[in-house]
């Protein structure tokens, strides 16, 4: 019983972390048709910037804010200066963003070193809650709550605000949004920045749970891609459901069949692509 409870908690917390990364990836794809492998670099950089801020100030919340802000700025520069130039060339985008990923991971290795590091959590989130004879790590519970809150906030922004309406229209037909007079390039830039900021914040939150280390960028972006493929490229709802599925399959798969740990992401991904390439909630 305790085993399953803790696995469910682990699965949920991983799912929420994945959602923070995959939601941006998915909306960015839906809007701009960009396949951005460097989204993993946003996570990595978020974690490392957060680490540096935390080491200087000891303030976890400031670390999240600063990391998200810096990563958002880097993301926007990347979108404007590089990715926009290869618009419409899918392989070109993948390879260019892979190049960006290589540069950032190499520079991060140079700057922050190769050892795995953990971000210190705020004191009040250390330890565990006791409930019904079971222990629940506070940090994971908080992460789950935070993930649900962010999901709700994104949903409200996209469904209930004017900018959200423009984004939804842009996912359907970017030309149309341009035609009715919106500065679609500005919308692209803002959404890309927001997606990067979420991934950067996820780097801090994830770094305090899983640690931050060279290679985390690639690991995370592949997981996020699995989420997006399963949920459907461009679908926010898909990103949420996909995060839950991958979060659980990864956690439970690794716990029950550790020898197959490396297959828990890619096998579901390939299966979905073969059976239904557009994903659970994507459009054909």
């Amino acid at each position: 019983m305790a085993f399953y409870t803790i696995q469910i908690l682990n699965g949920l917390s991983l799912a929420m972390l994945l959602f923070l990364i995959a939601s941006g990836l998915s909306v960015i794809f839906g809007l701009m048709r960009i396949i951005n492998l460097a989204h993993g670099s946003f996570y990595l950089l978020g974690g490392y910037f957060g680490l540096s801020v935390l080491n200087q100030t000891g303030n976890f919340w400031l670390a999240i804010l600063v990391a998200a802000a810096i990563v958002a700025a880097i993301g926007m520069v990347l979108q404007r200066v590089l990715l926009e130039r290869v618009h419409g060339n899918e392989l070109g985008q993948v390879l260019m963003s892979f190049g960006v990923l290589l540069v950032i991971s190499d520079l991060a290795l140079w700057f922050w070193g190769g050892l795995p590091q953990t971000l210190d959590r705020p004191d009040f989130l250390d330890g565990a809650l006791r409930f019904a004879g079971l222990f629940f790590p506070k940090y994971r519970v908080a992460l789950i709550v935070c993930g649900f809150a962010v999901a709700l906030a994104i949903w409200l922004i996209i469904e209930r605000t004017r900018i959200g309406a423009v984004i939804r229209a842009g996912v359907d037909d970017a030309e149309m949004v341009r035609a009715i007079g919106f500065d679609i390039k500005m919308v692209f830039l803002l959404v890309f920045g927001a997606g990067a900021a979420l991934a950067g914040a996820a780097g801090v939150l994830g770094g305090a749970m899983l640690g931050i280390y060279p290679g985390a960028d690639f690991e995370v972006v592949l997981q996020a891609f699995a989420v997006v493929v399963i949920g459907g490229l461009g679908s926010l709802r898909g990103a949420f459901v996909g995060s839950l599925l991958i979060g659980f399959s990864d956690t439970i798969g690794k716990a029950l069949l550790p020898e197959f740990a490396m297959f828990t992401i890619f096998v579901p991904m390939v299966a979905m692509l073969v059976i239904r390439p557009e994903g659970l909630f994507g459009r054909a």
Partner: peptide
């Protein structure tokens, strides 16, 4: 790796 990454970017 930085140089290789820049090569990817420049080629594209």
């Amino acid at each position: 790796l930085t140089v290789l990454g820049l090569l990817y970017i420049c080629v594209m």
